[in-house]
Simulated assay, not measured.
Amino acid sequence: MKKIKLISAFALFFMLTTAMTCNDNDDSPSNNSVDPTPVINTVNNGNWRITLYNDSGSIETNNFANYIFTFGANNVLTAVNGSTTVTGVWSVTSDNSLDDSPSNDLDFNIAFSTPATFTELTEDWNIISYNATKIELIHVSGGNGGTDYLTFEKN
């Protein structure tokens, strides 16, 4: 009989402790979305160049030297270097998923299908900082844990 009371008391203690540590918001994303409009308006204004591309510690900025990037209408991203034009897509979206850190931020999405050097830019980047002339981005890989940095500056 003492064992049953002891087990019951332990079970009650466990349930109360678990209930006290739970939060209604633990399993759902935040309802506070960040407005992507200011970033979109910033990049839509003018031409940009890559001043830093750090691929998990390897500086590969020169792969994009002399390319001028335009974040155009209908999410068209264009990179031009003389007679060479590379086209991709871009967007800025509010991300309040729990899989991302921070969980309530903006994602700067870039996608290129070719050439190989440009496909390395294809990521959902987090915005570190931005102003009228500079946008600093970061991406932490889920696979190998590498951290990439990408900086655009107004041309």
Rank of each mutant, 00 (worst) to 15 (best):
K2D: 10
I4W: 09
I7A: 10
A11L: 15
M15G: 08
A19P: 01
T21L: 14
D24W: 10
D24M: 12
N32Q: 12
S33F: 10
T37M: 10
P38L: 09
V39Q: 02
I40M: 04
T42A: 14
N44T: 06
N44M: 09
N47L: 05
N47E: 11
I50H: 01
T51G: 05
T51D: 09
L52M: 04
N54K: 06
D55S: 12
S58V: 11
S58W: 04
S58L: 12
S58E: 09
S58D: 13
I59S: 09
N62K: 11
N66E: 15
I68N: 06
F71T: 00
V80E: 02
N81P: 14
G82F: 01
T84L: 10
T84W: 01
T87A: 12
T87V: 15
G88E: 05
V92R: 00
T93V: 14
S94M: 09
D95G: 06
L98T: 13
L98R: 15
P102R: 00
D107T: 03
N109H: 05
A111D: 09
A116E: 14
T117K: 09
F118C: 09
T119R: 11
N126M: 12
N126C: 05
Y130C: 06
T133Q: 10
T133C: 06
T133I: 04
K134Q: 14
V140N: 11
V140G: 12
N144S: 07
G145W: 03
D148L: 02
K154L: 10
